[in-house]
Every structure is written in C-alpha cells, then in structure tokens.
C-alpha cells in the first residue's frame, strides 16, 4: 500500500478554525503541499494578514509574522529585502488586499517584488461577520449592503488580477477556484508555479483563489459552491492574466 493522500508536512497538527465548508482549509492544504513538494519549508516565511486567516501561522509549520491589516505585502517586502534567500508569501483575503491594502498590493506588484501572494476572494468580510467587501458583487446582500450592493451607492466590485495586470511589474497573475476536484488540481498547479517563480527570482506572483463563505453567504457548503460557479466566476473569470518567462521543469 502506498500513501496517495495525507496531511502535508507544511501544515501543523492544529485543527483549522474555519467554518464547515470554508475553502480556506483547501487553499491552506494546497499551499502546504506545494511547500512540501518544492522542499522549501525551512526557508519559507508566511506573512499572515488580518481576516479569517489571521491565525494561519498556527496552521502553516513555517516561520511566520503577522502583519497589520492590509500591510502584508509591505511586511513581506521587508522580510524579502532583508532575507533574500527566504521564500516569502502573504496569505490575504479580499478585505485585507483589495480594501485596506490596495496601495500595498499595487506597489508590491509594480516593484515586481519577488514574493508570492495567495489572495482568497470570497466577496465578503468573513471574520467580522459578513460585511460588504470591495469584491462584493452587484446586488449581493451583506450586513453593510442589506439592500444588495448598488453601483450608484456602493460602487462596483474590483477585479484584482485585471487591475494588477495593467502594471508592467508583476511576473505571474492567475485566478483559480477550488469548487471541484478538477479546479483544485488546477489551483494547486497555479500556486506551485507562483512559488517556483519566486524560487527562480522571477518576481511578483499572485494567485487569486475564488472561495466559498457558507456562513456569511447564508448558504450550505454545497449551495455555496454553486454560487461560486454561477455568480463569482461570472464576474471574476478564471485564467492566467500574466506569465512572464517560462518555468522550466515540470509544472
């Protein structure tokens, strides 16, 4: 008997603090699997952001620092500049990255900072209990857009990959999803490529992962997955937006 699937080494034994059916757990596992496969656990530094994943330094078995809300890309820049041999990644939600940290993510990308950003987009503020996020869809009801997001009042959702794609800087931008096994495999490939680019010093890589938030969407885990497919993916198309230079070797 050969082990086909097991808990990656880059995850601690800590139980995830996420809600049932939340995709953070899947994404954490993919990042950890990639860290294992690239054999970089001793040099990896996780820069945690503020949101549901704020305590992910309890789950990733790597060095880690917890950055102020929105500032993870800046903190990661500091780590990478001071310790260039480290593999530095930030793990941020849409409130952290696309609201509080918009300047930080744009400038880190424009500098083509050699860090990897795992950006989880669930179109809502999870930790604080379901408020509207910059990625909340038009018409989507949240605790702070109770009548549904109205462009005239609350403006329009931000497509981060497309936004960053207008910059010369970034080396790699891809949007993926984890709503079924096929897409989980695709997402892992993207995360792996992002980390590989950093290992090769190619610069800024960001993988935007569409993610379900059953609790705050008030949907079951399964219904949330349908919502990802029907609604989220309609506004946030999956695909590779930027890919500077090929990554040699198996993807």
């Amino acid at each position: 008997m050969e082990v086909v699937f097991q808990r990656p080494q880059a995850l601690t034994e800590e139980k995830f603090s996420y809600c049932p059916g939340c995709h953070h757990g899947i994404i954490h596992r993919l990042v950890a699997e990639v860290i294992d496969e690239l054999g970089i656990i001793d040099n990896t530094v996780c820069v945690s952001s503020v949101g549901c994943s704020v305590v992910n330094y309890q789950f990733f078995a790597t060095d880690a620092i917890q950055a102020a809300h929105g500032r993870a890309p800046a903190a990661a820049t500091g780590v990478k500049r001071a310790s260039p041999d480290s593999i530095v990644f930030t793990y941020q939600g849409d409130g952290d990255l696309a609201a509080m940290g918009t300047a930080e993510i744009i400038h880190a990308a424009a500098r083509n900072e050699n860090i990897t950003v795992v950006f989880v987009n669930n179109a809502i503020y999870g930790m604080t209990g379901g408020q509207m996020a910059p990625t909340t869809l038009k018409g989507q009801k949240t605790t702070t857009s109770p009548y549904g997001r109205d462009s005239k009042r609350e403006g329009n959702p931000i497509r981060v990959c497309e936004l960053l794609n207008s910059l010369d800087g970034p080396a790699y931008l891809e949007r993926v999803s984890v709503h079924d096994p096929k897409h989980v495999i695709r997402a892992k490939k993207a995360i792996k490529k992002a980390f590989q680019l950093q290992v090769k010093g190619r610069g800024f890589s960001l993988v935007e992962v569409l993610s379900a938030c059953p609790t705050n969407w008030h949907l079951s885990p399964l219904a949330s997955i349908e919502w990802v497919q029907k609604e989220l993916m309609a506004y946030y198309p999956l695909g590779v937006f930027r890919e500077a230079g090929e990554v040699d070797g198996e993807c």
Partner: peptide, 18 residues
C-alpha cells in the same frame, strides 16, 4: 483511491493509501 473526497475536504480529515 481517486482522492476526490480528500481534495475537496477543507479540514484535511481524509488519508488515503492504495
């Protein structure tokens, strides 16, 4: 042992050998 279940599990509950 296709591991679809394990891939979709958000809490790394499932371990598979084949």
């Amino acid at each position: 042992g296709c591991a679809f279940c394990a891939m979709m599990c958000p809490d790394v509950v499932i371990r598979i050998e084949r």
